[in-house]
């Protein structure tokens, strides 16, 4: 086998590893936190807190 064949296998393995890491973390996160917390993000936080939107 040539070097590039090993690199091919390495690419398969690394892709699987990264994909698996995301999946495991996703499942862990979803089971650790309440859904209400995870989807609590609301648009317009900065505007409501810091912007006046008035022309002086």
């Amino acid at each position: 086998m040539e070097l590039w064949n090993y690199i091919e296998y390495g690419a398969w393995a690394l892709a699987a590893l990264l994909g698996l890491h995301m999946l495991v973390d996703w499942l862990k996160t979803d089971s650790t936190y309440d859904e209400d917390v995870l989807i609590s993000s609301r648009e317009g936080e900065l505007e409501a807190m810091a912007e006046e939107h008035k022309v002086h």
């Binding site: 209400d36 917390v37 995870l38 609590s40 993000s41 609301r42 317009g44 936080e45 900065l46 409501a48 807190m49």
Partner: peptide, 11 residues
């Protein structure tokens, strides 16, 4: 932030 946001995107 307000409106009940507990976890938002990071600035």
């Amino acid at each position: 932030g307000p409106h009940g946001t507990k976890v938002g995107l990071l600035r």
